[in-house]
Design a protein around this nucleic acid. Sequence first.
DNA 1: TTCGGTAGCGCC
DNA 2: AAAGGGCGCTACCGAA
Length: 693
Amino acid sequence: MISLDTETTGVDMHHGAKPFFVTTCNDQGDLEFFEWHVNPINRQPEIPSEDLNTILSMVRVNNLVLQNPKFDVSALASLDARFGDEWPWERTDDTLIAGHLLHSSMPHDLTSMVLHYLGEDMQPFENRLQDACNKSRAMARSKFPEWRIAKKGADDMPSAKEKNWKYDLWLPRALARELKYPDDHPWWTVCQEYANRDAETTICLWPVLLAEIKRRGLYEIYRDRMRLLPVAYKMQAVGVSVSRERLTELTEEYAESAVRSGRVCVNIAKGLGYELSLPKGGRNKSLNTFIFDTLNLPVLKYTDTGNASMNKDVLSEYYHVLPTRSKERMFIQSLRNSRQLNTAVSYMEGYTRFWVPMKGADGRHIDDWYRLHPSLNPTGTDTLRWSSSNPNEQNISKKEGFNLRYCFGPAPGREWWSMDAKNIELRIPAYESREEEFIALFERPDEPPYYGSNHLLIFHLLWTDLWETAVKEVGPDKVGVHCKKRYASSNYQWTKNGNFAVQYGAIDREDGTGTADVAYHQPGAQAKIKARFTKQEALNQWCIRYAEKHGYIETLPDKTVNASRGYPLVCTRTEYGRIKPTVPLNYRVQGTAMQWMNKAMVRTQDQLDEWNRGRNLADQFHGIMQVHDELVFDFPKSSRHPMLDRGIFTRVSNLWRARRLQQLMAQGGDDIGVPTPVNLEYHDSSYDQGITL
DNA sequence: TTCGGTAGCGCC
DNA sequence: AAAGGGCGCTACCGAA
């Protein structure tokens, strides 16, 4: 077994960042490393081709252990595609996946884990490197202004923030070389020492983690988790397509609108004798003074640190209380608009920073189309959810007036299929606790009066009189649709809000000031619900007791992995050391839903790989996005629309393939003992427009 | 100029 | 004592 570690000139491999240092260490402690000079003018490494062949041959024959191999494989693949195509994932171990499994809420960076599991402090190595980088950056800035030092805003490093010395690890040595420093100058070796130490500690850390995993009976779960890495790698490598034309259209529309709203705000303030400088983001001092001192609006909520809040709920409250057609109300409404529009515009600016022109099979740019490659992190959360960054693909808005999904969609010659689990986070606790009324709801989604809607069931319970009146008016078949429409922005919306609060574990208070009761607009609502659905509440209490005793809660067991136990998720504690009671059931549900999703991703990827065997890249089937309970697939476009699949004309479109993936996803329900039907949507041209099939 | 904390807001 | 879970990104602001 060897460990392998790569140092790069940045994290934006799709924008020219490259490895310049690769180090390996075998289990005897023998190091072998490759360091390449980086041309400071274009930041490209100068690599003898035999080095890559040597590294590749080591990868081909050894068992491997890496800290976050997805990063290294992406980096090496940017030099030579064979690293991506041939990477032996089945022979690869990951200390990051292992670290999360052993303690989901601790930091999983190598330095932290080495300190925790080996008792060794690597921080001095990192500090020396940081110091050398910062000093050499300052020197290069003054002596060699044409050298390309990492900088926020540079178009070849869209991820760069203000703090970016890690993108210039190559620089101390390049300067030592340029300035002909003596051989014993530390800048020659400071990066090498750091990188080599990483490789050495990785190979030492691995057996310790593995032994602990086995001792705790988690080995099957570890192996199951490792199947995710090639799936994440492929998803990230393929990326998501964006239309420039549609993004430009939206940007212009929203930017203009934002300017108009902002102008209204400034003018109203001026009319009241206040020179407002409007923030582009949430708030600034000028706005604070205006809202709380000039308009004298009351403080309705406090931020985490105890300051007066001015978030969207507070603004919404102001809006509804202020007199119609008053200056104040108009101000608040314009402020809400301007904030939302500015947020949308800044998201879109992020997309244009990160996107890369989309290439066709002939290598030419497909006019108007670009691709994003968000970075996916399967260990990014304290549960089993993944995180996504640079840019985040998990917060693409579908709100009216903020519909960024419009910009995304299949490129010419492609079609998208999206699939999401129906109500999976409601189903899991309902089935686990055997809460019959909820189960009935899920089992009979086509029956009146609720037609499978949890919100309507609760609406009926909380607003019985409104419901009964409506039944008399329109009958039991239509009562749901009627109430949903009639009370869309009042009681029905409140019910939804309250239900989410309850789902996420809001704590009830007797005086009606609990989060859920406030959301429901009905004191005692949550108590009423608890009294009706006692089994689910009992499950909640069991989870809290379990977490108090063990410090963690487990996901529901997956019978194909380990029938007797699930993935342990360490629960957050309060400042007083107790388990936060809102956490355990939440983690159990969220974690189990993601275990389901993980199985769905592995199963569907196996199917896609089978379909893709022997196909040209342009004709392949890809998984491209995962948003917690939703997967999006990118297919070659069929010449026939899926709606034409009827009667004897089956398989005229890709519908049968989509159905196959849908079925593979739903199969995960058997593994956890919860029925999990999956919705299917076809997207002809845009992510925001889909046909349900 | 750099950097970290805070607030706000998008998603599920 | 006090309790709605999980994220990432941007703007703002003040301190170093």
